[in-house]
Amino acid sequence: MPDTAIQDGAYNYAYLDEQTKRMIRRAILKAVAVPGYQVPFGGREMPLPYGWGTGGIQVTAAIIGRDDTLKVIDQGADDTTNAVSIRRFFARVADVATTTRTGDATVIQTRHRVPETPLKEGQILVFQVPIPEPLRMLEPRETETRTLHALSEYGVMQVSLYESIARHGRIAKTYNYPVLVNGRYIMSPSPIPKFDNPKLDRSPALQLYGAGREKRIYAVPPYTPVKSLDFDDHPFEIETWSESCALCGSKESFLDEMIVDDTGKRLFLCSDTDWCQERQGEREGAPPEVPAK
């Protein structure tokens, strides 16, 4: 039996009871065994509303242990309310060390971003997923989407990309850009910018995706091919910026645009705060050269 002695005493270790964690782990194992396949699980009520990461928290709670170091980001930032709350939640109920440094974390729960710092073997990236079904907007019936996945009938997804090019001259989808996992299942990568899609492909880290409201878990095991859908004559491309980060000067990270005064003056900043701070540190510190890409 695991140690149930928590500071509060009233809760089991990592908040969820052991049976629930086992059930979620079984779902995770199945998800890892069938990359990209959405595994239903018995989602529990969590002490925060749907849409705030209930799926991700349950996955994290099921896999976390005392030896882990947890990082939580929301849109790339460690210091937003949601990220801070979840980090403190686990520090309290799971007695784990927390960090904002991507390289130091063993478990990273994220909403809407993949860290810029390349992930390594042994790390686990837990995504919060609002709508797990990539075909949902094209086919409202759950029975039918399941059949489409089962039979790999993905023409309709390609239809949506065709339609985008017909309307906008290019594939206009910029986030939650659909991917094909291991050549078999089409998967929603959650609402990350398509900029992050290439990081999912053959990543050394384990990717786990949790959808609390819809009670689905899916996964991409390390080194699994993840292909962003496209057309031969309209290949998948990521965003680029002509500007660079106002704080660290980065040109290769995902930049957020901010309006900073009433005259509409704009500023571009790294969305990944940890990456930005590390680079600022390097610029102020000894070696002034830009880190290797």
Binding site: Y154, G155, V156, Q158, V159, Y162, F231, D232, D233, H234
Partner: peptide, 13 residues
Amino acid sequence: GERLMAIGERHYG
């Protein structure tokens, strides 16, 4: 175009 895409056609043009 849907049937074409469903059987693997991937050239938009």
